[in-house]
Design a protein around this nucleic acid. Structure first.
Lengths: 221, 221
DNA sequence: AAATGTGAAGAGGTTCACAGCG
DNA sequence: CGCTGTGAACCTCTTCACATTT
């Protein structure tokens, strides 16, 4: 029913969801596309919002706006936020640690259930009840907890090997912080979904804009 | 000459630059658009690469490919990587710490020259020679070091205030990790460039794809 | 009257096909 | 002959205008 490329951008839907939670926390029960756009800093036009929401099924009442609760629930469903997800983090340096803390505090259905590293200084530490294992124990540990999502927060040189290892252990999606391109062969089963976050690349978007001139002020997700 | 929206996506250019550095480190002196696409895991088509590079000025030799060194230099220039940038980090929890370490190790022209926090436990610490200041001292500290770029790694509730403070202190660009929309008024001078990184949002892209079906395996930046 | 829903127009970015050089 | 450079077709996403509903 809702296919991967059905014309709406997922980052935008997540932004809507975030803004709706904020409005709900502020005591609102209903919101118009225009008010939602304002909450998003006019990053997206009201028309765009209506188009997106309409694609999920008509949820608004003409003349009134959208009722927040069911709309947020619908968005949460589409975003996969109503399922529980088990996350394994590989590389428990400062970045892996920060991500684990951040994500488990932010979304209650994201559970960091396994952590791996290679350093003797880190292995054996316990983070929020989760012990840091040697990466060599990944087969045993992952077999028992069955993580759907792996996060790679290791140096670039090690990322490819980690990715292959995760893929072999039935991890279905990978969030990669290492500044390198992962090469995962089209496997026999469903392909592993990979998303890269390149922090230096994000920063270079700013340095680019600062270098070539400061015309556009629009925010982006 | 090169305007903000000149038809090429900056994340893609940064990926090219990263791949070129990799090829150069492997001893290559020249590369074809097809080989570059392979290095990028066929995320982008050779035609797309040629279009992008052509937009920066013709740099290839027909029949041979591109000479890596000048091409990398050209990309570095466009991305602003040939300038030095002073970066202030606000919020020195695990995320701020991780970002500082990561970025200063990755790009040698990105200099973390000021760090701020509000917690007594953190203020006074020294990270790679940079002391952590109380955010209240930001006017004095930033006045003396003149940072172009600010990084917000504080809780969502505090982000708006921090953003306004940074904007008032002549920071020209902000990288925001707080999961909230920043509202910065169009100021009297050049507007502050804001880019948001929403870690939970990135993860939800994966959970969305895992939820609705696993058709597309393409990587994205 | 006010705000959503939606076809049509528009803009932007990607792919194709092939011309142009080395 | 190989690979780049590029106009044209193509396609996707955004914006506009307005019909529609409460």
């Amino acid at each position: 029913m809702i296919e991967p490329g059905f014309g709406v951008s997922i980052p935008r839907l997540y932004a809507y969801h975030r803004a709706l939670r904020q409005a709900e926390a502020a005591g609102e029960a209903t919101i118009t596309s225009h008010d939602l756009a304002a909450l998003l800093g006019h990053t997206v036009a009201p028309t765009q919002i209506r188009k997106d929401l309409c694609a999920l099924g008509a949820l608004g009442r003409r003349g009134h706006g959208y009722t927040i609760a069911p709309l947020a629930a619908q968005l949460a469903w589409v975003l996969g936020l109503e399922n529980d997800w088990r996350i394994a983090i590989v590389g428990f340096g400062s970045l892996g640690h920060a991500f684990a803390t951040f994500i488990s505090a932010r979304e209650k259905r994201f559970h960091v259930v396994a952590v791996f590293d290679t350093s003797r200084n880190v292995i054996g530490q316990v983070w929020q009840g989760v012990p840091v294992h040697d990466i060599a124990d990944a087969p045993r540990v992952l077999r028992s907890c069955g993580c759907e999502i792996g996060v790679i927060a290791v140096p670039a040189e090690a990322a490819q090997e980690v990715a292959e290892r995760l893929a072999a252990l039935d991890v279905r999606a990978i969030l990669n912080f290492a500044p390198t391109t992962l090469h995962l062969p089209a496997s026999e089963r469903a392909p592993v979904i990979v998303r890269n976050i390149d922090l230096a690349g994000e920063l270079s978007i700013l340095t680019h804009r600062l270098t070539v001139g400061t015309l556009p002020a629009a925010e982006e997700a």
